[in-house]
């Protein structure tokens, strides 16, 4: 068959289709990012060819969040001689090839934070508005993945341009088209017709991935239980181990906290007002004139986890933990947010 290029279409394709999709994204002017095997893990890099893509998800170090919310950005420039302010918000064309369902859910959470209010954040919007997503469903769970507990994976059924699920024979993928742009990326592509069996394989593989998750967290009533467990002795136990290094928050795909600060060059001709990532784990985060609201490490650690598993639900109606497991992987003190949730709620 030949794909018509319409939303709602589906087909079975081989890996050669990835080359075509990537090439079409690049032709349209997108910088395309995907996970590449590097330093023994998966790292989001600009892709040259689709052959560089790693199909096995290892979580990686930084999530792709930096593509739509950079670690540091200039909001405007101030000419100190003329007193003129210049704000240059240029639309950015980027695409992610092989983003995972958990990271898509994290993106949706950030959309609510930055675009959900009366005044959408224009810097975020400039990077978000034109952001094609080619999503890989997860057919295996990593050791620290708990997306199935958080309701954010291993499969996705919304907010994708293209959705790809690896079927049980290597090199066969179920391709689903989720948008007009997704359609354009596959129009006229030669493919096999997707049969019912292919869908059965997809669903079985996703169910297996969920069932085989080695990390779990029951979320029923979790915010209330976390509030009640604010004084649980486990907080002391883990904060005794915690380095307060902020590794966990720095790899979190939903963390959005920031500093806004001014940077002026030596000649004092220009000041740039910048925004950069900050984290509740930093001592400076809760500092005010005359004190600090979270001077103790236990308070900073608890703020991080309570925000993810409790406060975010009060703020946005969803957990700002998508179960990607990165904070667990990269904690040098072996602190585990899922374990913490289980302990506080009395499941562990």
């Amino acid at each position: 068959m030949v794909l018509q290029g319409q939303a709602g279409e589906n087909a079975v394709v081989g890996r050669d289709a990835f080359d075509e999709i990537l090439a079409r994204l690049q032709e349209r002017g997108y910088a395309v990012y995907g996970t590449v095997n590097e330093k023994g893990t998966g790292i989001f890099r600009p892709l040259g060819g689709a052959g560089e893509l790693s199909l096995r998800c290892t979580g990686g170090t930084l999530p792709p969040k930096y593509l739509w919310y950079p670690p540091s950005e200039t909001m405007f420039t101030y000419d100190r001689q003329s007193g003129a302010l210049r704000s240059e918000i240029e639309p950015v064309k980027q695409a992610v090839f092989g983003i995972r369902p958990c990271d898509v859910h994290a993106l949706l959470a950030l959309d609510e934070v930055f675009l959900g209010g009366d005044y959408p954040d224009p810097y975020y919007r400039a990077r978000r508005e034109d952001l094609p997503l080619v999503v890989f469903n997860c057919v295996e769970s990593g050791d620290t993945c708990f997306c199935s507990s958080m309701g954010t994976g291993p499969g996705l059924d919304h907010d994708y341009d293209l959705l790809i699920t690896e079927l049980d024979r290597p090199g066969r993928f179920l391709l689903e088209v989720g948008s007009g742009l997704g359609g354009e990326l596959v129009r006229d592509l030669r493919a096999e017709v997707a049969r019912d069996e292919d869908y059965q394989v997809k669903h079985r593989r996703l169910e297996d991935a969920a069932a085989n998750a080695r990390t779990t967290l029951e979320t029923e009533d979790l915010p209330r239980l976390m509030s009640e467990g604010h004084g649980h002795p486990y907080w002391r136990e883990i904060s005794d181990k915690c380095f307060g290094c902020a590794n966990c928050t720095s790899v979190c795909p939903t963390c959005y906290c920031a500093d806004i600060f001014d940077e002026t060059d030596f000649s004092l001709t220009e000041t740039r007002r910048k925004r950069r990532w900050s984290w509740c784990f930093l001592m400076e985060f809760g500092a005010v004139h005359g004190g600090n609201f979270r001077e103790r490490r236990i308070d900073r650690l608890r703020q991080f986890m309570q925000h993810k598993l409790n406060f975010s639900v009060g703020q946005y109606g969803r957990f700002h933990c998508v179960g990607c497991g990165r904070c667990i992987v990269w904690c040098p003190a072996n602190i585990d947010i899922a374990q913490t949730g289980r302990t506080i709620r009395g499941d562990a």
């Binding site: 209010g117 954040d121 959005y256 906290c257 806004i260 900050s278 409790n310 406060f311």
Partner: peptide
């Protein structure tokens, strides 16, 4: 920020 995005002024939710 004043915009609910910098996270600094959060007290619980």
């Amino acid at each position: 920020c004043g915009q609910k995005t910098c996270g600094r002024c959060q007290i619980a939710d």
